[in-house]
Design a protein around this nucleic acid. Sequence first.
DNA 1: CGCTCCTAATATGTCGGAGTAAATAGGGAG
DNA 2: CTCCCTATTTACTCCGACATATTAGGAGCG
Lengths: 252, 252
Amino acid sequence: MPEAGFMNEDAIAKSGDEARGPGRRLHGAIAHKLGTAILSGKYVPGDILSGEVAFAEELQVSRSAYREAIQVLTAKGLVASRPKAGTRVLPRDRWNLLDPEVLGWAFAGEPDIEFVRSLFELRAIVEPAAARLAAQRRDKEDLKTMKDALAAMRRHTLTTEAGRAADRDFHKAILQATRNDALLVLSASIGAAVNWTTQFKQRARALPRNPIPDHVRVYDAIAAGDAAGAAEAMNVLVDLALEDTHSSMVAK
Amino acid sequence: MPEAGFMNEDAIAKSGDEARGPGRRLHGAIAHKLGTAILSGKYVPGDILSGEVAFAEELQVSRSAYREAIQVLTAKGLVASRPKAGTRVLPRDRWNLLDPEVLGWAFAGEPDIEFVRSLFELRAIVEPAAARLAAQRRDKEDLKTMKDALAAMRRHTLTTEAGRAADRDFHKAILQATRNDALLVLSASIGAAVNWTTQFKQRARALPRNPIPDHVRVYDAIAAGDAAGAAEAMNVLVDLALEDTHSSMVAK
DNA sequence: CGCTCCTAATATGTCGGAGTAAATAGGGAG
DNA sequence: CTCCCTATTTACTCCGACATATTAGGAGCG
């Protein structure tokens, strides 16, 4: 019985070595491990995760922890369990790819270029439309949030995490100004993708242009209540971002 | 170690169909109960769910089953648990509102009109753009799927579940033809909302116009590879749907 | 009197074992 | 060869115990 304590610390320390901050809880760490394994293609749809007991022993954790991790994956549409049939990886179209955590797993390894393209295409569709709505519905507080984020972007550049957070805040403020919860939820997903690619571009030593002027143009149009201008300015912004991303990805 | 023998498409499709429903498993039923309670506003952000033991006793289930349900809610961003502090409902902007299951919980009771408006606004943004992409990228198989769905819509009308399923299939086929996974994921969310409102309009005895011609126009444009025409036709379609929905909701 | 640190209480997290229900595989009867 | 029945495997549920973490309150000290 006292063994339980030791193996617990062991497992947590181990998971900490492999990836920092996946989940503070044990089942969170397991979900992270399995999630990244699935997203990276280590398991493909149709594959069966060997039985509870086998897997729990292999991971050196109890069945409870393993089961709770499976519940998480099930909730996100990655797997489904049936008695006797085992736990099976579901087809890709059942995955909640827009779930922030799933997205994090997708970007934990080397994400599929096609998938990144998908997200940027979605962004190119949603964000200009959101900017148009924001221009019509924003209030003073929204504008202040955007302005603050813009100032923070100027202070810290996109080379720092603080700068990227400010970038996310700016875009989130726009989504928030649309007064549309469904759109707002997307900001988390899109933000994760953009953040990753921004880091990626930087790793590739290819951080090209100053993004501030483009952002300012979007802000000005929204502040002026110019719906068409906001949409167009945002369109330019995401197109340029996509262009940069694409070139640095194929370059690699 | 998947033995290629016994897992066929049938088994996967079957498991997919029976996956919906209030929850055949116990923890699924609990998650449903708590999820609908949260989405309906019975619990508001910041509220804390009384302790595990207390709640498990109240629901007459074991702590394990309750905990697995909580893991599901946690995975969807509805709640977060911390030792000693309890399990508290997270602020709304952390909720994965586009998760199909969460959406189902939102529509289980009387959904917030503002939220429905949000989803239709999202639809009005995404679907025309998707139709544009579909017109450029669809292949013969995509067109066949759309055509079949259209035929099914004609056979069963929108008054039957089979007809509404055909409607969803039609729109899903368009999203699928975009070759964009991120967009495809949205189809499930949007489809759920549209399905609910369609049923709602019917309950309100206000099923107004024949939707077939509008759908045919979209199909024709996509089949012809007319990107602009497809976007415009879809735009008309969703605008009319939104108009109908709005009028029947305020009428009530 | 106020601050810091330590201790204790409490609720979540983890564990492993027992028993139940379901679905498949394999064998037996027709 | 087909159909049904049985047996086994596996997930699902429950239980009681211990470990851990966070908070709250009190002791000690400046």
